[in-house]
Simulated scan of single mutants.
Amino acid sequence: MSDVANRAEWRIAMDLTVAKAHARCTPQLEADGYCHYCDEQVAHGALFCNTDCRDDCQWEQEALRRAGR
């Protein structure tokens, strides 16, 4: 039984390692004072002017990923 538990722990550790490496390689948006979707001016440190812009941008990015771009 301990072999199964050991393999499960090893698999979890490997999955976490791969996920962390992927997260480091994925480009992140940087706050530049403007909404990343509609280019309106936003508060310091904000990426989007409201949740609608955030959701629309996320939807478009996911569509591009599904299309392989």
Rank of each mutant, 00 (worst) to 15 (best):
M1K: 15
M1T: 10
M1G: 13
S2A: 13
S2F: 12
D3E: 07
D3L: 13
D3A: 13
V4M: 12
V4E: 11
V4D: 10
N6C: 13
R7Q: 06
R7S: 05
A8W: 08
E9D: 09
W10S: 10
W10V: 10
R11N: 06
R11I: 04
I12E: 02
I12F: 08
A13C: 03
M14K: 13
M14R: 15
D15C: 15
L16Q: 04
L16M: 08
L16P: 00
T17Y: 10
T17N: 10
T17P: 04
V18W: 02
V18T: 07
A19T: 04
K20L: 14
A21G: 05
H22A: 15
H22G: 09
A23I: 03
A23E: 00
C25M: 14
C25T: 11
T26S: 05
Q28G: 03
Q28R: 06
Q28M: 03
L29C: 01
E30K: 09
A31W: 00
Y34K: 12
Y34D: 06
C35S: 01
H36D: 05
H36P: 02
Y37I: 06
Y37K: 08
Y37C: 03
C38M: 04
C38K: 01
C38P: 01
E40R: 14
E40I: 14
E40L: 14
Q41V: 12
Q41H: 12
V42K: 00
A43C: 09
H44Q: 09
G45H: 05
G45C: 00
A46P: 01
C49D: 03
N50S: 02
N50C: 00
D52F: 08
D52T: 08
D55R: 07
D55M: 04
D55S: 07
D56Q: 13
D56Y: 11
C57F: 08
Q58Y: 10
Q58R: 14
W59P: 08
E60Q: 13
E60I: 11
Q61H: 10
E62I: 07
E62H: 07
E62C: 02
E62N: 03
A63W: 09
R65I: 06
R65L: 07
R66M: 07
A67D: 10
A67F: 15
A67C: 14
G68W: 01
R69W: 11
